[in-house]
Design a protein around this nucleic acid. Structure first.
Length: 285
DNA sequence: ATGGTTGAGCGTCAA
């Protein structure tokens, strides 16, 4: 009987032969707690690159043996005590871009930028964890909401200044559901942080600096699509009050290489699941 | 309008 990891390795050979690069993003909500689910992710989804958010592990406590045991020789992480934290696990070599900005000068571990060495050349990859923004959708009354908007504004300016960038993929928990059908009820969520017009406008401006939505590329805008369901719902599947907070964007030159997307709803039922599920896109590069 | 749950790490904050 093959172990899940052996199956993952066999599948990896296939994916590399067909030159399909599968990139997954997942807000894991504690890397250390969900190590068994990382194995589940690898055996069932088999990504070539895994971008994580909310790892909630300081760098000195990051389990450095874990990526290798899961079959990912190459990795980068940036974490802090208690909150936030991002990590990238990769089967392909990567280099961290140490020149990436410290957003809002908070040093709060919400972004990793790497260059991935693919068979067809380098690919720029960004893993973002955008501030959630608190409960009150008013930047004057709520500093967390102000931080969220400022963060997105800085990121927008950063990519706008690099006009015409290519071979770039941006993923992460962007904590905004931009389209009407990215939430269970557009009308009921218009004043709820994650779907307010000011956030949606900000996110759209960021995307317009040079990205297309690689998941919606495959799914019509009038089709409901979620990647997050609150822990505060007894039966998430029955109520299905979800939001699409997790995104994969690509620079337009990569459009011809987009092969498939998948939002892994079933992961919401994994034992001790995260409230977010993995989202993946296949690129033929 | 409110409350509902989870994680980090031990107070409560953040989501």
């Amino acid at each position: 009987m093959d172990s899940p990891l052996a199956l993952g390795r066999a599948a990896r050979q296939c994916s590399l032969m067909s030159r399909t690069l599968r990139i997954a993003t997942w807000n894991i909500n504690s890397f250390r707690l969900r190590m068994p689910l990382m194995e589940e992710l690898v055996s069932t989804i088999d990504p070539d690159i895994i971008c994580l958010q909310e790892t909630k592990v300081p760098d000195e406590l990051f389990p450095r043996e874990a990526p290798g045991l899961l079959g990912y020789e190459h990795y980068a992480f940036k974490g802090m005590k208690g909150y936030n934290g991002v990590a990238i696990l990769s089967r392909l070599p990567l280099t961290v871009d140490a020149t990436a900005p410290d957003w809002c000068e908070k040093g709060d571990c919400r972004h990793l930028a790497v260059s991935v060495q693919t068979p067809s050349g380098p690919l720029e990859l960004h893993d973002f964890y955008v501030p959630a923004g608190g409960d009150i959708p008013d930047p004057v009354e709520n500093p967390k909401f102000a931080h969220k908007l400022a963060f997105i504004r800085e990121a927008t300016a950063y990519f706008a200044a690099r006009k015409g960038f290519k071979r770039t993929v941006l993923v992460g928990d962007l904590n905004i559901a931009p389209l009407e059908h990215d939430v269970w009820s557009h009308k009921q969520l218009l004043k709820i942080v994650s779907h307010t017009p000011v956030e949606v406008d900000a996110l759209n401006a960021w995307q317009k600096t040079g990205f297309i939505d690689a998941v919606r590329h495959f799914v019509p805008a009038d089709e409901k699509l979620y990647s997050w369901w609150s822990y505060r719902n007894k039966d998430w599947r029955a109520s299905d009050r979800g939001r699409r907070l997790d995104h994969i964007w690509a620079s337009p030159d990569l459009t011809p290489s987009l092969k498939a997307q998948r939002i892994h709803r079933d992961a919401r039922d994994w034992p001790q699941s995260s409230d977010h599920v993995p989202v993946a896109v296949d690129f033929a590069i």
